[in-house]
Amino acid sequence: MSEAKKMSRNDKLRHDRLTFYKDDIDKIDKLLAEFLRLSGAKSALLIDKEGHLVTKRGEIKTIDIDTISALVAGSFAATKEMARLLGEEEFTAMYHQGERDNIQLGLVGDRTLLTILFDDRTTVGMVRLYANETAKKLADIFKSTMGRQHESPDLGADYGTNAKKSLDKLFD
């Protein structure tokens, strides 16, 4: 391993995680609420590319957000791979039409997916129009938060020891 690579390892580790702070999420939530008002969509979920929920707004009526997030990320990743094979850089949006409900998925920045659920109270055109605007604003928020991720430790000093205890409890 080269020296340069060694030096950057610490930075890389930090880059390898995605941290969301409360005040940023508050800003995001506000944007999403505004988006729902303008577009008439039912709900919006922001999911990271690994399939973890970042935040959600609106009528979310599902029992298993974890599973939905994993499937959304998986199907987006599959679509992206298809795009690559077809020589497209990336399909930045996907649309699934159901009988009553529809889903629009769009990339925000390079790490998160905006997932919008809507029904026939609005149209895909309206949803896309406002989704594009919202995605741009969200991307700006992410850009401005990136620099802050190098600040002081995020988790409490006792996180490690408590984690061990919890593992013992779960797996005993």
Partner: peptide, 28 residues
């Protein structure tokens, strides 16, 4: 309220992905 989610994912290598959600009860 009841909830049904139907998902079908057709895959790359052979296919495309499709997801349908049908939503019912209120959580948050």
């Amino acid at each position: 309220l009841a909830l049904v989610i139907t998902l079908s994912v057709l895959l790359v290598g052979a296919a495309a992905g499709v997801v349908y959600f049908f939503m019912g009860s209120n959580l948050s």
